[in-house]
């Protein structure tokens, strides 16, 4: 920040003995307040400091977030075969096509199922894992590391690995299922199972992150509160329901937003494992943007879908901020 500024209440010394002329403490506060030149200079210095500190970040946001956002909206009004130097302005035709296409209902349904399952699953299972890892057990540090490790792996690598695990003919999962007398479904080529496969792998990859954040939240809960609850006769379940979960509210709220946004923007696993198939049963809004743009070459239409996804994300986030945050106990 700028150099400290004297407050108006500072009394002026009776006799200016050792202070230099440049030291403004020699001036009466009323002068500081009333001089428009000084006030403007202070304001400029504040702006300068603000620009120096926030400028680089703002520039990056402008170039890599807002510029593409605006460009994307502009492209959504074009009929543009990606790669072509020319395009045709079509107004809102792409949006009309999107909202009247029979494929949109399927894509929206896929997105809803995938998001609800991955966000809900990650929060519930992540909390369970965090409660487990919070116990005083031997090898706890190793268990925490192992649980978190999948999160830092590349999504493409995880997808390729699990493709082999799920292979119905010689995959590990098929072998395990056959050992208990169950025939492995054809995960890749049957429409409900491909989505189930994706959700399982997504949860496996992201559970460690959710558990880690919950673990930090759990460790922030004072032992005294737990002890007080115990003295009042609360059992473990009652303590969890009435003490731990409410106090984890801010953590849950944070995780709800971050996991929801991550899930809606998931791409790598879908691309590595199903490429939106079979029969479009794993095509989410995010994957449709890629397919329409780079596979079908319809960059204008893809931009319209991207704009719709952006609005969905914005609305969800604003709703969460407005309504959910009120119910969180800090």
């Amino acid at each position: 920040m700028a150099t400290p500024v004297l407050v108006d209440s500072t009394p002026a010394p009776a006799t200016p003995v050792t202070l230099t002329d440049t030291n403004r403490t020699t001036r009466p506060p009323s002068e500081v307040r009333r001089s428009p030149g000084t006030f403007r200079w202070r304001l400029w210095r504040q702006y300068l400091a603000f620009l120096l500190l926030a400028g680089p970040n703002l520039a990056l946001l402008l170039i890599f977030t807002y510029k593409p956002l605006i460009e994307s909206f502009y492209y959504s009004t074009l009929q543009w075969n990606i790669g072509s130097p020319t395009a045709r302005f079509v107004g809102f035709d792409n949006y009309i096509q999107f909202f009247t296409s029979s494929k949109t209902a399927q894509v929206a349904g896929n997105t809803l199922v995938f998001t609800l399952a991955t966000v809900g699953g990650a929060l519930v299972l992540g909390l369970g894992l965090a409660l487990l890892l919070n116990q005083r057990i031997r090898g706890r540090s190793i268990a925490r590391t192992v649980a978190f490790a999948p999160y830092v792996l590349s999504g493409i690598a995880v997808g390729m690995l699990w493709l082999y695990i799920f292979d119905p003919r010689y995959g590990l999962l098929g072998t395990l299922l056959s050992a208990v007398g169950i025939t492995s479904p054809d995960w890749y080529n049957s429409s409900p199972w491909a989505m189930v496969m994706l959700i399982i792998v997504y949860l496996w990859k992201h559970l460690g992150y959710v558990a880690l954040i919950y673990l930090a939240g759990l460790q922030g809960i004072s032992q005294e509160v737990r002890d007080a609850a115990a003295l009042d006769g609360a059992g473990r379940w009652r303590t969890l329901r009435s003490i731990v979960l409410p106090l984890l509210g801010p953590t849950t709220f944070f995780l709800l937003i971050t996991t929801l946004l991550a899930s809606l923007q998931s791409f790598d696993l879908i691309h590595a494992m199903t490429q939106g198939g079979p029969l479009g049963s794993t095509t989410t809004l995010m994957y449709q943007i890629y397919q329409e743009s780079f596979v079908n070459g319809r960059a204008g239409y893809a931009s319209a879908v991207a704009t719709v996804l952006f609005i969905v994300l914005l609305v969800i986030t604003l709703i969460q901020l407005k309504f959910v945050e009120k119910k969180v106990h800090y």
Binding site: E71, Y74, Y75, L78, W80, S84, P85, T86, A87, R88, F89
Partner: peptide
């Protein structure tokens, strides 16, 4: 981005 117009 692309130039817009009917002529291609």
């Amino acid at each position: 981005g692309p130039a817009t117009g009917e002529e291609r």
